[in-house]
Measured scan of single mutants.
Amino acid sequence: MALNTPQITPTKKITVRAIGEELPRGDYQRCPQCDMLFSLPEINSHQSAYCPRCQAKIRDGRDWSLTRLAAMAFTMLLLMPFAWGEPLLHIWLLGIRIDANVMQGIWQMTKQGDAITGSMVFFCVIGAPLILVTSIAYLWFGNRLGMNLRPVLLMLERLKEWVMLDIYLVGIGVASIKVQDYAHIQAGVGLFSFVALVILTTVTLSHLNVEELWERFYPQRPATRRDEKLRVCLGCHFTGYPDQRGRCPRCHIPLRLRRRHSLQKCWAALLASIVLLLPANLLPISIIYLNGGRQEDTILSGIMSLASSNIAVAGIVFIASILVPFTKVIVMFTLLLSIHFKCQQGLRTRILLLRMVTWIGRWSMLDLFVISLTMSLINRDQILAFTMGPAAFYFGAAVILTILAVEWLDSRLLWDAHESGNARFDD
């Protein structure tokens, strides 16, 4: 018995066209964080690309023209004298008006014999932002004059995390709450300039795509075929072959399989920071003279006294001054041990922890910024005066060393310790 099946006739004509040209192939790229070699397709503007294995951002879609970056830099340069030299806060102490600005706080630190601690604050609040705007201006002028731009481009990517104007702005709020127990506070004209400078700096850093600047100024022929001998440069993120001198053909720094002496430098910085954190938390970090009496505060006791007036601000200072430094030390110690013992479990967790400490590390400088600003506000000789204690130097040095330890660690070593050939990683 035959089955009668109805015929289905399409209502619209289906047209099949042959592909007349070869589909576009992607360029081969190595991930600078996990060293995976993959094919990167062509990316349009405002599109980002991520590593298929570790999800690290390979290409950032946010990109401004150099002219727009230069305009932002010149605007920031105009704001800087007002943000640093004009009063941020006014207080009335014992019937006398006192003005506080950024430069005055750094000068008070240096004047009291601790120039190293003052230079830490100076670099993060004044030096690094000033280098940022002058570097962008150098790129703008240098591109037109045919100057060598490689050193500036190499420095810009590392400079971003040292620009800490946003953290200093939080420190202004913390210092205001600490001082309000002794005097009446009012915002100064410099505060508005400083807030504007923070906003412009944040926007500029978020749109400063150094890798795209490398592509514009020093374009290189990408690798179009897969080759395990391809290496990625950690300076400019170019994937290719080393030249005859073993250097990256684009930025001219040595092109090595792994960062040289990464573990040794990381261990040295980490152990030194552990040693410095002990006096930083045991010795007094601030000293207040009130009517001839002397009151010393460690980091913890200062947080407890701050909690009596504002528990939320005390929580912020606790996280930045105690929780973050010790968390960074514990995480980095764990990561280094996992590399030495070739741990194969929990790779995803370790990668996330490394990215976390990379982002939060700079916030530990908050305590030094609060001390710097408070020193310029309260300084009335023996009637009422505020000065920093010996722990300030140890704390600042420990924070900087932990930042350097994270920067010096080559994250690809975590993958080397893991089993080879993993296309995915999980716990």
Rank of each mutant, 00 (worst) to 15 (best):
H207R: 08
I98E: 01
R258I: 10
M332A: 08
N310P: 12
A56V: 07
C248Q: 00
H261L: 10
P279Y: 04
E211P: 14
S376H: 03
I400F: 03
R362H: 04
V399M: 06
Q104Y: 04
S305E: 12
N379W: 01
S364P: 00
V275Q: 11
T224K: 14
S65F: 04
T134L: 15
T117I: 02
T402Y: 03
Q33F: 10
W64S: 10
T9M: 07
T358A: 14
V210R: 15
K57Q: 09
C31S: 00
I199D: 02
S420V: 12
V370Y: 00
L230M: 14
Q7E: 10
L139A: 02
G20V: 07
L282K: 12
A223Q: 14
Q344L: 12
L413T: 10
K12M: 05
V210M: 14
T75R: 00
W359Q: 10
I185P: 00
I299F: 11
Y289G: 01
R424F: 13
R245A: 10
V189D: 07
Q220Y: 13
G188M: 10
L89W: 03
T334C: 13
A183W: 07
D114L: 06
W408F: 13
R231I: 14
L354M: 15
E157N: 15
M147Y: 04
E22N: 09
I253L: 10
A280G: 09
N143V: 15
G127I: 02
W140N: 05
F341Y: 12
F326K: 07
P32G: 05
Q180Y: 02
K111I: 02
D410T: 00
E42R: 06
P81G: 04
L282E: 10
A392N: 07
L300Q: 07
A56I: 09
P81W: 05
A405K: 01
V195G: 10
L3N: 12
Q264I: 04
I177V: 06
Y241N: 14
Y241R: 12
L89F: 03
A73G: 07
P222V: 15
N281L: 04
L352I: 13
L88M: 04
L401H: 08
T349E: 11
F38D: 03
V329E: 08
L78W: 09
P129N: 09
I285S: 01
I19H: 07
F393S: 08
F217R: 15
L336M: 09
P81H: 09
K111R: 12
P32F: 07
A187V: 12
V198K: 14
L404H: 10
E212A: 15
I167G: 03
G246L: 11
S45N: 07
A71S: 08
Q345P: 11
V313W: 07
P41I: 08
P129G: 08
A70K: 11
I19S: 09
Q382W: 13
R144Q: 12
H207S: 15
L255W: 15
R62T: 02
Y182T: 13
W64T: 13
F333I: 14
G292N: 11
M120T: 04
S338M: 14
C124I: 03
N44S: 07
Q180R: 06
L270N: 09
R231Y: 11
L337G: 12
S273L: 03
L213T: 15
T334Q: 13
L213E: 06
A223N: 12
H340A: 11
K342W: 11
L353A: 13
G61S: 13
T298P: 14
M164T: 05
C124G: 11
Q345A: 14
S193V: 05
T327Q: 09
G105V: 01
M164I: 02
D166S: 15
V329R: 01
A70I: 15
R25L: 07
I19M: 09
G95Y: 05
M375V: 10
G142L: 08
S305L: 09
Q344M: 13
S262F: 08
